[in-house]
Simulated scan of single mutants.
Amino acid sequence: MPTDRRTVLADAAIAVLADTGMRGLTHRAVDRAARLPAGTTSAYYRTRQALLTALVRRLVELDQAELQEIGARVPVPRTAAELVTGIVGFAAVRLTGEGRTRSLARYACAVESARHPELREILVPRENLARQAVCAFLAAQGVADPDARTVTLLTCVDGLVFDRLVNGGSVCEEEVRGLVAAALR
């Protein structure tokens, strides 16, 4: 559990955003979620935009740490079946528990970034070990332009996660198998 006050507030803001949506993200709501005295969030993040920027930076930091850890723990897939299993497992994490909270907050921030380009710059997908593993697998399979195919494949997976957050359900192996097969063509 983080002890740095700014990190505690950013984490609380992620939870508030996931629970209440963009309209519910207020300094007072973050104070309550962080169990801190009224006015604390405002003292650290004077404006709502400053709070939102801190939230997005923390969200990216948490996501990148998770993806780096996955990439370090899981070797480059050797077969399409291994890649499918890895992606389905990752999607399950994004749909449950803390992953669900962060996913809901991430999508709310992505929509908000259409009006605030400074947020879009922070949210831009970054290189990480998990993304590199997918790209390395596609390259090893002889796919032309594995970088572009990796982006397309992971964007499609992201779309499935978004759909399941909105409509319920889980990302199934058959769907991912189809996406991987398309990426390999």
Rank of each mutant, 00 (worst) to 15 (best):
M1L: 11
M1T: 10
T3W: 06
T3D: 12
D4L: 12
R5Q: 10
R6G: 07
R6M: 09
T7K: 14
V8E: 04
L9W: 01
L9Q: 00
A10V: 00
A13R: 00
A13Q: 02
A13W: 04
I14D: 01
V16C: 00
L17W: 04
A18I: 05
D19V: 02
T20S: 15
G21R: 08
L25N: 01
T26V: 03
H27K: 12
H27V: 04
R28D: 05
R28T: 04
R28K: 10
V30L: 04
A33D: 10
R35V: 02
P37G: 12
G39E: 00
Y44W: 12
T47N: 13
R48Q: 05
Q49W: 15
A50V: 12
L52S: 13
L52Y: 07
T53V: 08
T53G: 06
A54R: 03
V56C: 07
V56W: 02
V56R: 04
R57L: 12
R58E: 00
E61C: 15
E61P: 13
D63C: 11
Q64C: 15
A65M: 11
E66K: 14
Q68N: 09
E69I: 14
I70M: 11
G71H: 05
P77M: 14
E82W: 10
L83T: 03
L83D: 02
G86D: 04
G86H: 01
F90W: 14
A91D: 03
A92C: 12
T96H: 12
G97Y: 08
G97S: 10
G99A: 09
R100T: 00
T101E: 06
R102D: 03
A105E: 04
A105D: 04
A108V: 11
C109G: 04
C109N: 03
V111N: 09
S113H: 05
S113L: 09
R115Q: 12
R115V: 10
H116L: 15
E118K: 11
E118L: 14
E118Q: 13
E118W: 12
L119K: 05
R120L: 14
R120A: 15
I122L: 13
P125D: 03
E127D: 14
A130V: 15
A130P: 10
Q132W: 15
Q132A: 15
A133E: 02
A133M: 06
A133D: 05
C135P: 08
F137N: 02
F137M: 02
L138F: 06
L138Y: 02
A139Q: 06
A140L: 09
A140E: 06
A144H: 11
D145Q: 11
D145K: 09
R149K: 09
V151S: 13
T152R: 11
L160H: 05
L160A: 06
L160C: 08
D163Y: 12
D163V: 08
D163C: 07
R164G: 01
R164P: 01
L165D: 07
V166S: 03
V166A: 09
V166E: 08
N167T: 06
N167H: 11
S170M: 11
E174S: 14
E174R: 07
E174A: 15
E174P: 05
E175Q: 09
E175D: 11
R177T: 12
G178Q: 13
G178P: 10
G178H: 10
L179P: 00
V180Q: 00
A181D: 11
A181T: 13
A182D: 10
L184A: 03
R185L: 13
R185Q: 11
